[in-house]
Design a protein around this nucleic acid. Structure first.
Length: 149
DNA sequence: TGTCCCAGGCGTCAGCTGAC
DNA sequence: GTCAGCTGACGCCTGGGACA
């Protein structure tokens, strides 16, 4: 699987910018990257801004999470001796990995939903903008067309 | 009421990528 | 090379709507 077209891995770098001539909010989504901001997500200036022009770019930082309850830090590998201890350690590591991945998947899905919402908003804005431009074009055509009476 | 279908969410695995 | 994080893909579960 290649990443052509799709948001690149780790591309939680999403960007949007509010900018308007008529007060409408506009979203700027170069390629597949879009910026999302909500109360749960901390946005920080990204070092990748140079790659996307002058628009401010932000990288989503997931809220820092402490280890969930019930998770006990591992003993150092050097302190393990018996095969049973090794097996327990392997099991514990697996549980920890699964738990982290579980949380990562949730966060990933949340960001994806946010991204889709952002795109939908942008579509709505662009549709309105397009409609206005068409109307303006029609008006200008009326003004400029020679009278036929 | 029971059944079917669909959409959405979740957990897990596998592969990729960047950091070290 | 190893490790941790991210994300697409897959399968499963569940709730809700349509239908007989």
């Amino acid at each position: 699987m290649t990443n052509s077209g799709a948001p690149p891995p780790g591309a939680t770098i999403v960007q949007y910018a509010a900018q308007s001539a008529d007060g409408t909010q506009q979203f700027f989504v170069p390629g597949s990257q879009v910026v999302v901001q909500d109360e749960e997500t901390e946005l920080a200036p990204s070092h990748m801004a140079a790659a996307t022009g002058d628009m401010p770019t932000y990288q989503i930082r997931a809220p820092t999470t402490a280890l969930p309850q019930g998770v006990v830090m591992a003993a150092s590998p050097g302190s393990l001796h018996s095969p049973q201890q090794l097996a327990e350690e392997a099991t514990r590591k697996r549980e920890l990995r699964l738990m982290k991945n579980r949380e990562a998947a949730k966060e990933c899905r949340r960001r994806k939903k946010e991204y889709v919402k952002c795109l939908e908003s942008r579509v709505a804005v662009l549709e309105v903008q397009n409609k206005k431009l068409i109307e303006e074009l029609e008006t200008l055509k009326d003004i400029c067309s020679p009278k036929t009476d």
